[in-house]
Nucleic acid binder design. Structure first.
Lengths: 220, 220
DNA sequence: TTCATTTTGTAACATATGTTACAGTCTAGT
DNA sequence: ACTAGACTGTAACATATGTTACAAAATGAA
């Protein structure tokens, strides 16, 4: 299972067995809704998702949260926060479902980095991608109005689905992903509909004016 | 000079000579205002500041920009964006002053990573810190009102300076750092003043009600 | 089916921030 | 000392988003 994790790209599971034989590790289970780690907490172990799903979300003191991402097997988490002078979680990690996580202590991880060149390379790639991901988040969260974010989101969905888009998330979820309130998101959706850019009916959305949506991305 | 760069912590300059002897590199000069790299451009080299100062800023199509950071010697730049599947600059890099930059091609950098354990370690630490930095940016940009950002900024400044704070940046600069407009920033400053939290007169600011400022951080 | 719960639609209103504009002030260079 | 250019203070107004509230609709469990 572990060998599917992008961190172990290019490492066969038998090689992995050898690499890890003498390294201590742990497997932890979490119930749905349980918190795996809290923002500010020290990050001592690499974590790799085995089962279930967790999310990382930032929360301010007043309770407003924005979701940064979902993480599902076989992806690792906290990769970019184990090292550095301030090795703390920047987000809360919460189980979306009953989940199982593989834990490898920082020290073991250092050993692994020395033992396996592919692992090292994967690690550097992943950590770099994280920086890209976070940069993109900043852009997304700061440079778009709600309509812009919606347009972005819908156009992205459209490229993977065909024609009609079926939202898999509730408006509530979308709102926290966008860092806005639910009524505001609803209003933006309605506006896009009224402006004739989309045909929205409950969870089903049809893009009518692709050009118009793309203009929103560039406009504000 | 290079040996002062955090990437070469623990490497003496004579060791550095040996490490780099056969590696090709480049030194480039940029005039004030010149663009070193554009957002979206591929990132092929590690860059290390030798002289001057540059800034990284995100810009949307309409021209609104927010400054992410200033980078000055002997700091490296683009460290976190050389690797990963999408090795592109997420920001524009612009010279604040006439500047000089050391360029090490990606390939040379890979060699260096293999040759020097301290370099590798520094690299991983720096790249991790970048992820932390970006996370903090997200928090800062999304969870604070303008007043909150100001409070944050002022409290931070106060800890380094004594008593009276002298702003070194213009309101215009602060505004782009906060991702807001200049009049809005001015208004926020005035509000803090009128609310009796600070005594602001031109560039000189005196914190009067520290508790009040801290409350702003937690409030919104 | 029926009922409880979640999700959605929507409205009135409050607030924060952007936009534009202009005048006052400071500062550096001549 | 004078002037051009930048910076600051501020105002009126426009707009986007948040807040609160409630009803309609959908969904899922009994």
């Amino acid at each position: 299972m572990l060998s599917k994790c992008p961190l172990f790209n290019g490492v066969t599971s038998s090689e992995l067995d050898v690499l890890m034989k003498d390294l201590p590790f742990q497997i932890k289970k979490y119930a749905k809704g349980q918190m795996l780690a809290q923002s500010g907490e020290e990050c001592r172990s690499l974590m790799i998702m085995l089962k279930g799903s967790v999310r990382g979300e930032m929360m301010d003191v007043s309770g407003k949260a924005i979701k940064i991402e979902d993480i599902e097997p076989p992806k690792p988490l906290a990769v970019a926060f184990i090292f550095g002078q301030n090795n703390r979680f920047p987000v809360n990690i919460i189980a979306n479902d009953d989940s199982e996580v593989f834990l490898l202590p920082k020290e073991s991880m250092l050993i692994l980095l020395q033992r396996s060149a592919p692992f090292l390379k994967n690690f550097m790639n992943i950590i770099s991608s994280r920086a890209q991901f976070l940069s993109d988040k900043i852009r997304f969260l700061n440079f778009q109005t709600i309509k812009g974010k919606l347009a972005h989101y819908l156009l992205q969905l459209e490229s993977s689905q065909q024609g009609e888009i079926i939202l898999t998330k509730s408006q509530e979820e979308l709102a926290t992903l966008f860092g806005v309130t639910r009524p505001s998101l609803g209003r933006a959706l309605r506006d896009l509909h009224n402006d004739g850019l989309i045909e929205a009916k409950a969870k089903s959305i049809l893009i009518i004016d692709r050009q118009g949506l793309m203009a929103l991305l560039r406009k504000d």
